Computed example of a mutant assay.
Amino acid sequence: MDVEGAVGKDPLTQAVIGAAFEVANVLGRGFLEAVYRKALTHELRSRGVPVREEVEFKVDYKGAVVGRYVADMIVADGLIVEIKAVDAIASAHVGQTLNYLRASGLNTGLILNFGSSRLGFKRVTL
Rank of each mutant, 00 (worst) to 15 (best):
I89F: 05
Y69C: 12
T125G: 09
A85K: 07
L110C: 05
I80W: 00
D77L: 12
E33G: 10
D72W: 00
P50F: 10
K84V: 08
L126M: 08
P11L: 06
A6F: 12
V65M: 14
E4G: 07
S91W: 15
D77N: 13
R47S: 12
T125L: 13
G78V: 02
R118C: 03
T125K: 14
N113A: 04
K62F: 15
S46L: 15
I74T: 06
G63W: 08
A24T: 03
V66W: 09
V70Q: 08
R45G: 12
A92Y: 11
L119M: 06
G5D: 14
A39G: 03
A20R: 12
H93S: 07
V66L: 09
V65N: 11
V66P: 06
M73L: 05
V49E: 09
I111A: 01
A20L: 11
K9F: 06
A103L: 07
G30A: 00
A88P: 09
D10T: 01
A90I: 12
G105S: 06
A15P: 10
I83T: 05
H93V: 07
A24K: 10
V35C: 02
R68F: 14
G48F: 08
V81F: 00
R102G: 12
A64H: 12
P11Q: 05
V35T: 04
N99S: 15
G105I: 05
T97I: 14
K58L: 13
A19Y: 11
A76S: 09
K9V: 04
